[in-house]
Write a protein that binds this DNA or RNA. Structure first.
Length: 493
RNA sequence: GACAAGGUGGCUGAAUGGUUAAGGUGGCAGACUGCAAAUCUGUUUUUUACAGGUUCGAAUCCUGUCCUUGUCUCCA
């Protein structure tokens, strides 16, 4: 019996605007697709938040016992810069600026992307397909849509005919838009002459002679439109209908709307059963943008080399910070917020270290089974990680009360509590105990222990000048001594 | 301008009709300490942007105003 059989999960579906009971298409299996990054620059911190939300969701589904096929693509071609640029590929443009081959750019930033996600302790997706690796599949879809009358070819490019599609289907149902409104509000762009209507979007674009990334097709040399790859790859690996499609809120329109249109045109039915959208990350109350300088890279947070934060923060602290907000809420990053999260994270980890060392009692003053279910209830309610963390701190408080001798806990309950906390902290939230990789075994540890010994002797002799000198000089080196009832410990900053 | 999501304490952030509005952090007090720091415990602050309305009862529903973020053109 798997956990999911008695832990009913509810998910907020962006398509219906309601929380719905999650029932996968095929029992015990979940297909999940998440729109991955366009690898033309360093991965954006806001980007990381979205992927982290789905990493957590992936983790929890697995924890519940589902076999999950998680597909997250790499967009390495296909995004147009804008129409005025005659459809120059975003990747190709960057390549020209840096005098690099397009695939060299792709390689560089794919490596950066994986490197950052690895530091954040992401689980790798089951499949990480690339757009350029699925050109044939994309061409097949274009042919199919053309054959079904929902697209038209103009001068080597193929466009999706939104107006025709809207006669039989509902274009805009995901983002709450109506085609008539869009028609009324669309600005007329010069280069859109080819299209029948401004709302039509490209399925295939003709490549101009100078365009580097190009592939042969029935309509001449060109490259795929940017909504197409997700339809091609999700269908190929998850089927014409699959359970979960995720992405950032900003992709709702037009990207996900177009995905729905493409799939409905092609297969005659809606492709996705549960649409999930993660919300944005702001910084100091404003949107993050390179142009305004209100921007920070993940690596700059880890190294502390930035002009926005007062110190460096570890990936786990940033992860904990993000997990303290619900994935559908806008989250604001600031120095104060990170400092607060760091403190809380450390307190949680401290309690985890304390737990196995607790004195065993004959009874437990707290209902661990009910507490554990409280953790599941939080997660089952649309992955409510802030409530889960609040619940974890309830356990922290109990652990500390036992430590202080104010409450007791049995050996069996220590084991149960430890297993439960570890499952939620490490397996589901994906945090890492950075303190665990201590310095005890290395030479520095031995040296500090010696100094602690000398300081203890000095204090016993009431030679506080010497004891304070040891304490303060070590502090200046970033080694903090902590005097407790049972002796002195230390941490290295 | 249109559409979407929001506006909760010093900061961060849960709770969508029902007893004292969760948790983290900060402040304050106590314990510990030679003194600090660290740690632990207790405690404190908001009446939920603003103005109306519905209801026995609203942060939660409705109307209007102001503001923020997103989308409408590449973007998580």
């Amino acid at each position: 019996m798997q956990l999911f059989e008695n832990q009913p999960l509810k998910i907020y579906n962006s398509l219906s605007g309601k929380k719905e009971v999650f029932t996968p298409l095929s029992k015990g299996h979940v297909g999940m697709y998440v729109c991955g990054p366009t690898v033309y620059s360093n991965v954006h911190l806001g980007n990381c938040r979205t992927f982290m939300s789905f990493d957590m969701i992936f983790r929890y589904l697995r924890h519940l016992g589902y076999k999950v096929r998680y597909v997250r693509n790499i967009t390495d071609a296909g995004h147009l810069v804008d129409d005025a640029d005659d459809g120059e590929d975003k990747i190709a443009k960057k390549a020209r600026l840096e005098k690099l081959e397009p695939m060299e750019v792709v390689q560089r930033y794919t490596v950066d992307f994986h490197n950052i996600l690895d530091q954040f302790n992401f689980l790798p997706p089951s499949i990480e397909p690339t757009a350029t690796g699925h050109i044939i599949e994309q061409i097949e879809i274009v042919k199919d849509i053309l054959a079904k009358g929902y697209a038209y070819e103009v001068n080597g490019s193929v466009y999706f005919d939104v107006a025709t599609f809207n006669e039989t289907n509902e274009y805009g149902k995901l983002s709450g838009r109506k085609l008539e409104d869009m028609v009324a509000n669309t600005r007329a762009l010069a280069a859109q002459d080819e299209k029948k209507n401004p709302q039509d979007f490209a399925l295939w674009k003709k490549a101009e002679p100078q365009h580097i990334m190009r592939w042969p097709s029935p309509w001449g040399d060109g490259f795929p439109g940017w909504h197409l790859e997700c339809t091609a790859m999700s269908t190929k690996y998850l089927g014409e209908t699959f359970d979960i499609h995720g992405g950032g809120m900003d992709l709702k329109f037009p990207h996900h709307e177009c995905e729905i249109a493409q799939a409905e045109a092609c297969y005659g039915h809606s492709p996705v059963r549960y649409w999930l959208h993660a919300n944005m990350l702001t910084m100091n109350g404003k949107k993050m943008a390179k142009s305004t300088g209100n921007n920070i890279l993940p690596g700059e947070i880890f190294s502390g080399e930035n002009s926005i934060l007062s110190k460096a923060f570890t990936p786990s602290v940033v992860r904990f910070f993000m997990m303290q907000a619900h994935y559908t809420s806008i989250l604001d990053l600031s120095n104060d917020a990170l400092l607060a999260s760091e403190k809380g994270y450390q307190r949680l980890m401290e309690a985890l270290t304390t737990l196995p060392k607790l004195t065993v009692g004959t009874k437990t003053d707290f209902d661990i089974v009910a507490w554990k279910q409280g953790c599941y209830d939080a997660m089952n309610d649309d992955f409510n990680t802030p409530i889960l963390i609040a619940q974890l701190f309830e356990a922290v408080k109990r652990i500390n009360l036992v430590k202080e001798g104010k409450e007791t806990i049995t050996a069996a309950d220590i084991t149960l509590l430890k297993e439960s906390i570890n499952a939620f902290v490490f397996e589901v939230l994906g945090l890492e105990n950075e303190r665990a990789s201590g310095v005890d075994s290395n030479k520095l540890g031995g040296v500090v222990e010696l100094l602690i010994q000398l300081r203890m002797e000095a204090r016993a002799n009431k030679d506080f000048a010497t004891s304070d000198k040891i304490r303060d000089q070590l502090a200046a080196l970033g080694i903090q001594l902590k005097d407790g009832k049972d002796g002195t410990t230390f941490t290295v900053a």
